[in-house]
Amino acid sequence: MFEARLASSATFKKVLDAIKDLLNEASFDCSDAGIQLQAMDNSHVSLVSLNLKSDGFEKYRCDRNLTMGMNLASLSKVFRCSGSDDTVTIKAQDDADTVTFMFEAKKQEKISDYEMKLMNLDQEHLGIPETEFSCIIKLPSGEFARIVRDLSQFGESIVISCTKEGVKFSTQGDIGTGNVKLAQTNNFDKEDQSVIIDMQEPVSLTFSCEYLNSFTKATPLSNQVTLSLCDNVPLVVEYQIPDLGHLKYYLAPKIEE
C-alpha cells in the first residue's frame, strides 16, 4: 500500500508545470525515502531529477517500493481539478494499475477523487557521477528566468561565462548580440535575493535557450536557483522545493567537435 498526503496540492501542480514541457510521461519511484523521478527528454539532451522527501509529506506510507508510470498531460488534467488550497492524497495498492488522487478543501467542505490509469514505461536510468564543479552560482530564480527570456529573443544559444568578477550571460543572432553581467552581491542577510558565486576555476559553456527556458518553468517553486558548471560536463540547474525536496535539471552543453 502506498499513501502520501501533501498539505499543498498547489506545490505538486507547480512541480508538474515545471516538468511537463520536457517529458510526456515519467515513472515516479516510491520508496520509504520518498518519491523520486529521473527522466530524459526525447532527444536525450536534458534530464529531470525530482526528489520529494517522505518527511516533507503530512502523511507518508510506502510498504513496498513502487514505480508508477504516468502520462504527464493526464496527470495535469487531474491536478487542474484541485483547488489552490486543497490538500492532496496520492494512493495506490501494491501492484495496482491505477493511482488515486484525493483533493480535500481546507474545511473538508469539498472532497473529490480521481483515479488514473498507470503506464508501464521502460525508462533508461542514467548513472550520474559526483562532480567537482568549477563554478557554483546562486541567484534569484526570477532574475535567471528574466535573463534567459530576454536573451532568447536574439539567439538560439546562451554562453554562460563565470569568473571571480561575476557571471556573464551572452547571446548572438541575426540582429546582433546581447550580454547580461551579474556581479556578486553583498546582501548576505537576504540570501535568496543575492548573487553568490563560488568559483574554483573560470568556465565558459554554451547552452540551448529552448531548454533553459523550459527549466525556468520551475521558477514558482523557489526564490533561488543554483547553476553548477564545469568544463565539458552538463550544466545542473537546481531549484530547492522548501521543506519537500528539490528539482534538478541537467543540460548537455553545445561543444565544438
Binding site: 530524459m40 532527444s43 536525450h44 539532451v45 536534458s46 534530464l47 533508461e124 536510468h125 542514467l126 548513472g127 550520474i128 557521477p129 539567439g155 538560439e156 544559444s157 554554451t206 540551448s208 565539458n232 560536463v233 552538463p234 541537467y250 548537455a252 552543453p253 553545445k254 561543444i255 565544438e256 567537435e257
Partner: peptide, 14 residues
C-alpha cells in the same frame, strides 16, 4: 553556434 551534444556522451545508462 557549436553543435548540441547529448547526455549520453557524459553519463552511462545503468
Amino acid at each position: 553556434t557549436p553543435p548540441q551534444t547529448t547526455l549520453l556522451a557524459f553519463f552511462e545508462i545503468c
